[in-house]
Design a protein around this nucleic acid. Structure first.
Length: 879
RNA sequence: GCCGGGGUGGCGGAAUGGCAGACGCAAGGGACUUAAAAUCCCUCGGGCCUUAGGCCCGUGCGGGUUCGAGUCCCGCCCUCGGCACCA
């Protein structure tokens, strides 16, 4: 019985030494290290294609190597590991890989702040985090590890880029970026705060630079429609993608100019309100503006002001509407009235045609604008009840109604009017049906060093020339000075920039921008199928075997960006003929955030737990600290828990078990130190239970069958019920928390069980106990793999517990021996009756009516009806 | 404003339209111990009936459907998240 943890040994050796707060615990450190070593030696999680087995691809979002793993990773990867181990035990050939999303800005910031090379910083972090993941006992096939910043990986980003370039899906156009004059660099949207640079607080301007784009809009319709064929995705993720794609159906209408210049086309979803269009508004950047506003310097000034205003600010809903008259007029094609053309901040060049017809009576934005600049308002839609007049209009009437003041259309319901008007426009060549998407093309240029070089060369004679495939990869040069000064750091590396043109051999320059790191993660799941392939990005047969991903698991924060880009890439690669599937991820589990309560001091803000004393006061100023609401764990909120501490103190199995037990996976998890201890206690209880019985189990146990069992029937049955419950919970929605609860129930039952036979017994109790314990260990395996392996081995089993097939419950055993049926009178619980398990409806009814407690409730009442739910309940309805 | 989650004990959370509160945490009581820790056992939604044992109320609020509603329907309130001048 000398198997308890180190502390217990210490206590025994040093009798008489008093230690307060000493705990006895199982030696998780030794077990976990041992089994991690054995798994590695046995290559337990290597997989190859095996047509004989059903395949299962389980994937968790690969991490950015920021330094250390955080609790979100612990949760994410614990979930994934249970899924992977479970399906493996169910007989599937499981692909469960891991890698590193290792290009990105933090590496460059580290270079600027600490003078470390981004590569050194990144690869150090990967080394540390890989060690942490291994310490968690995750069942990855590490032979398939990929690192997106390796040339072996990113060369294929370049390859895909060139393929897309050939197909016209990658193109260059001028686009606005956030530019800080002080830093001389482009800033990401997240680095612009209120229109100012986050570093030096100087004003950020919109600068027009040549940028590379992927034409994701070419797939807008398919990306939208495909969502309907993803039943395994959470509804909210699909909704967010639908909103993001933002399909709207309407019409494009041509408005002739009064001066006879070529007409201006607008997009509208409300062509039924065309008769109410009393003016037009163009985006300040609209290409026709210079012609229209000739000789009007004040318009130039307005445009200039709009150009320099931060795009985010300008497009914010709270920003006041402002505009200016261009001096030009257009003609409403239906009323044939002359209407003024204005420019305004709220009209965006990127959406629709960059021009709108303004219907102030029926569009709130137009209404506010018309009121401000005193422009005419004309009511053309009347609500069903009550008349609307222009005079008493306090806000725009945007709902449906009946068309009025609309010439031949007057009297039509607005909904129907939309169809009739668009037909009319098409017949006369004034306009046509049109669909618009809010989705914009994906700008992938980054003026950064630590990313995939864009494989393009520009030559003064030949223009834009793609790097030939044979010259890939375009390697990212190593010795580059990284500062915040200047444009892309690569632009100052002459050896890199200066090349000869692949077409004319003349002097030419390389593109010095790098790709958005979302490009890397848009296809990494394909690379896991054939990470070793040197001559191609994806190997058709292997990808055909493994893809699509059966279960993808990650944070909700990628609901739109990553998950949309990955779907887009999948469709592009399909159209390149390399894969056959349309969607990358069949089932998606978006795990909730890991949260913890925060502490705030009135003077010092967020406090770490160690910055709060026992009296709940700030250690710096002694003011009472307010315990705030629970929020997502983050360094800035000072409410993080370091997984290293958790792993050292309680071990991987406890860390995993707690993060799975505390909440269902898709909900937020509230951190609780006490809850972690609870999980640890449970594992210790399992350990002690098995440890205490190992000796008994070394004696031979007889074969048992439930039918002949004279003792321990309830325990035997509980084991089968637990198999049923755990299996159901894993199959239905991965309800790990209730599955673990079922295991706890089994342990509670076993804790009460005495396995010593009555005099004259022949080991039946021992046999029941052994069966139940082995069942427990197998079922516990996916959740607490190290402890399960250790206990399994100690019971004398030579093979790994993960080579055991997942058990199946016996339907005969699970049948209750005695049915306890609930009896209600008028829907209220009044009694319970016990009956043999196969009692029929009539027996139930009779037994219920004769029950003495029920009798007292029926006194003086007439039984009107008796509802019988077989095996469950009888409800007696009286008058 | 629009869309999507969610409101159940002191807390995290359970409940295919059929026993509300599984399991865990906290709390209280007890056993073991010289003592503490650890462990084990018991109690644990609220109110009421002196007891055995029972009764009443209770899943955000108000209606409805049903023999029966935490669960389904209608109307609200609160809360979290996403989107938001998208024509």
């Amino acid at each position: 019985m000398q198997r308890l943890g180190a502390c217990a040994i210490y206590k025994r050796k040093s009798r008489g030494v008093e230690r307060i707060g000493m705990t006895r615990f199982y030696d998780f450190k030794a077990f976990e290290a041992k089994w991690q070593r054995i798994w590695e030696e046995r290559e337990a999680f290597r997989v190859m294609e095996d047509p004989a087995k059903p395949k299962y691809y389980c994937l968790e979002m690969y991490p950015y190597p920021s330094g250390k793993i955080h609790m979100g990773h612990v949760r994410n990867y614990s979930i994934g590991d249970v899924v992977a181990r479970y399906f493996r035990m169910r007989g599937c050939n499981v692909l469960h890989p891991m890698g590193w999303d290792s290009f990105g800005l933090p590496a460059e910031n580290a270079a600027i702040e600490h003078g470390v090379h981004p590569a050194a910083w990144t690869y150090d972090n990967i080394g540390y985090m890989r060690k942490q993941l291994k310490q968690m006992g995750l069942s990855y096939d590490w032979e398939r590890e990929i690192t997106s910043s390796d040339p072996d990986y990113y060369r294929w980003n370049q390859w895909f880029f060139l393929k897309m370039y050939e197909k016209g899906l990658a193109y260059k156009k001028p686009a606005f970026v956030n530019w800080c004059e002080v830093c001389q660099t482009v800033l990401a949207n997240e680095q612009v705060e209120g229109g100012r640079c986050w570093r030096d607080e100087s004003e950020v301007i919109q600068k027009e630079l040549d940028q590379w784009f992927f034409k994701i809009t070419a797939y807008a319709e398919e990306l939208l429609e495909g969502l309907d064929r993803l039943p395994g995705w959470p509804e909210r993720v699909k909704t967010m993608q639908r909103n993001w794609i933002g399909r709207s159906v309407g019409a494009e209408v041509n408005f002739p100019l009064a001066s006879g210049l070529s007409p201006i086309t607008i997009f509208t979803t409300r062509q039924d309100t065309l008769y109410g269009a009393t003016f037009m508004v163009l985006a300040p950047e609209h290409p026709l503006v210079p012609q229209l506003a000739q000789g009007r310097p004040e318009v130039q000034i307005f445009i200039e002001r709009m150009r320099t205003q931060d795009h985010l600010v300008r497009t914010a809903a709270e920003t006041e509407k402002e505009g200016i008259f261009t001096g030009a007029y257009a003609v409403n094609p239906l009323t044939e009235e002359k209407i003024p053309i204005w420019l305004a901040n709220f009209v965006l060049l990127e959406y629709g045609t960059g021009a709108i017809m303004a219907v102030p009576a029926h569009d709130q934005r137009d209404f506010e604008f018309a009121k401000k600049y005193d422009l005419p308002i004309q009511v053309v839609i009347q609500p069903e009840e009550g008349a609307l007049t222009t005079e008493d209009l306090e806000k725009a009437y945007e709902d449906e109604g009946v068309m009025v003041n609309s010439g031949p259309f007057t009297g039509l319901p607005s909904l129907q009017g939309r169809e009739t008007v668009v037909q009319y426009l098409e017949e006369r060549g004034i306009g046509k049906r049109a669909v618009n998407y809010r989705l914009r093309d994906w700008g992938i240029s980054r003026q950064r060093y630590w990313g995939t070089p864009i494989p393009i060369i520009s030559c003064d004679r030949c223009g834009t020339v793609p790097v030939p495939y044979t010259d890939l990869p375009v390697l990212l040069p190593q010795d580059v000075e990284i500062t915040m000064k200047g444009r892309s750091p690569l632009a100052r590396v002459e050896r890199f920039v200066n090349v000869s043109c692949p077409t004319c051999q003349g002097a030419a320059r390389r593109e010095t921008d790098t790709m958005d790191t979302f490009v890397d993660s848009s296809w990494y799941f394909l690379r896991f199928c054939n990470p070793e392939a040197q001559d191609r990005a994806v190997e058709k047969s292997k990808v055909a075997y493994w893809m699509p991903v059966d279960q993808y698991i990650g944070g909700i924060e990628h609901a739109v960006l990553h998950l949309l880009y990955a779907r887009f890439f999948t469709k592009v690669i399909r159209d390149l003929g390399l894969i056959v599937h349309d969607e990358p991820f069949v089932n998606l589990l978006t795990q909730g955030m890991v949260c913890k309560e925060t502490s705030r001091c009135p003077t010092h803000g967020y406090r770490f737990p160690q910055e709060v004393n026992a009296q709940g006061r700030c250690t710096e100023c002694d003011r009472p600290v307010e315990v705030g609401r629970t929020e997502k764990m983050s360094k800035s909120r000072r409410n993080v828990v370091d997984p290293d501490d958790l792993l050292n103190r309680y071990g991987a199995d406890t860390a995993r078990l707690f993060s799975l037990f505390a909440a269902p996976p898709e909900k937020d998890l509230e951190w609780s130190d006490k809850g972690v201890e609870g999980a640890f206690r449970f594992l210790n209880r399992v350990y002690r239970l098995v440890d205490g019985w190992t000796e008994e189990f070394s004696h031979p146990v007889p074969a048992i069958s439930f039918a002949d069992l004279t003792v321990g029937r309830a325990v035997y049955q509980k084991a089968h019920l637990t198999i049923m419950k755990v299996t159901e919970d894993l199959d239905r929605d991965f309800h790990f928390n209730t599955a673990i609860a079922a295991l706890m129930e089994l342990v509670n039952v076993l804790g009460q069980f005495d396995l010593h036979d009555e005099p004259g017994g022949h080991g039946e109790r021992r046999a029941v106990a052994r069966f139940a314990v082995e069942t427990l260990i197998i079922l516990l395996g996916p959740f607490a793999p190290h402890l399960a392996e250790e206990l399994w081995q100690r019971l004398g089993n030579p093979r790994s517990v993960f080579e055991e097939p997942w058990p199946m419950h016996d339907v005969e055993v699970v049948q209750r021996e005695v049915l306890v049926v609930v009896v209600q009178v008028n829907g209220k619980l009044r009694s319970r009756i016990s009956l043999p398990p196969h009692a029929g409806e009539e027996e139930l009814r009779r037994a219920a009516l004769h029950d003495s407690r029920v009798q007292t409730w029926l006194q003086g009442r007439q039984v009107k009806r008796v509802v019988v739910v077989p095996k469950k309940l009888v409800n007696i309805v009286t008058d």
